[in-house]
Write a protein that binds this DNA or RNA. Structure first.
Lengths: 178, 178
DNA sequence: GTCTATACATCGATAGAC
DNA sequence: GTCTATCGATGTATAGAC
């Protein structure tokens, strides 16, 4: 593992524990086993380091999601969409935990998250349309809102994996998907 | 308005904009039109200042909620519970906005919020029980999760008041409350 | 590529005058 | 009650040697 990767790994851990603002470059250097100067050689500023961290994992998440939801429609898409967060999060747990922590105060995280979420809204709307819901746009927003809130609960340890699966089951039944 | 109140008011604004950690006591003093030393005379530490800010408004919120939900049961309680956030938030908009921003990284905010939420879970469970739901405990958790996510969306400007009301209407219909 | 040493700003907090 | 002045610690970032 290169020193650059060590820095990224250490940053992810520390940013998640304390937030980006509260994490000093000194503590990152210590945790990564490198000198503080090296951080600035690689990333220029602390803000850049955070952005690189965010960018990389959101691209991975977009890839994962594209495959996960590909060529599904109607019922199938909704089922997969409800189940998405648990697989996505398990795949990048530390990253999503960090995003949850820093999101409300970090415009960069917000921007990347919006880009990540955007394509789903339209697909959701089409699925509800195909299922003849009265107000597909609103239904899409509601489901998106809810799924977004479950993953947040999951990464913030408010609910367990088992609870998530129970909720997801109830949800699928309520939407007449199973 | 006393200087102490000016400090509290300025803190609320600045903590919301940037987070508590990123807000310096110097900037609070400037915004409040007082000397920096006065902040420490009144509150001892910056952390204490934040806690006093949080404590006061959570007590107000608990009072408001108690009255709002009093002597309701079953259907009525669920309806009122779904409608609660919009009235609660409008009553203390800046405060809830701040809480939304600092919550994931602030253990004190988390603690007060939990205390605030706790009583509702049991009441929700009883209401679902009275309505003969199959799994009242799980239903209570789901609705709590969802309502919690709507108020967050509302204070973070992700949804408008009108949207909130539409969602709340759909929700009440889905639970056969209207 | 990587380190040591250090510059320089800003932080929270205190002392002491009025 | 309120201010000015100041302290020591800590923050990000840079210079320069190896």
């Amino acid at each position: 593992m290169s020193k650059k990767d060590e820095i990224l790994k250490a940053s992810l851990v520390l940013f998640t524990e304390q937030g980006a603002r509260a994490t000093s470059t000194k503590s990152i250097a210590k945790q990564a086993g490198v000198s503080e100067a090296l951080i600035f050689k690689y990333f220029g500023t602390k803000d850049n380091l955070l952005e690189e961290l965010i960018k990389k994992d959101y691209f991975d998440a977009i890839d994962f999601t594209r495959v996960y939801l590909s060529s599904k429609s109607g019922k199938d898409f909704l089922i997969k969409f409800i189940e998405l967060p648990i697989d996505l999060v398990d795949n990048q747990f530390d990253f999503w935990r960090m995003i949850y922590k820093i999101f409300p105060l970090n415009p960069i995280a917000q921007q990347y998250h919006n880009n990540f979420m955007k394509p789903s809204l339209k697909k959701l709307e089409k699925s509800f349309e195909a299922l003849n819901y009265e107000n597909p746009a609103l239904e899409a927003e509601i489901l998106l809102l809810f799924v977004d809130s479950i993953w947040k609960s999951y990464v913030s340890d408010k609910i367990t994996k088992e609870k998530y699966q129970e909720i997801s089951y109830v949800l699928k039944k309520r939407y007449n998907l199973i």
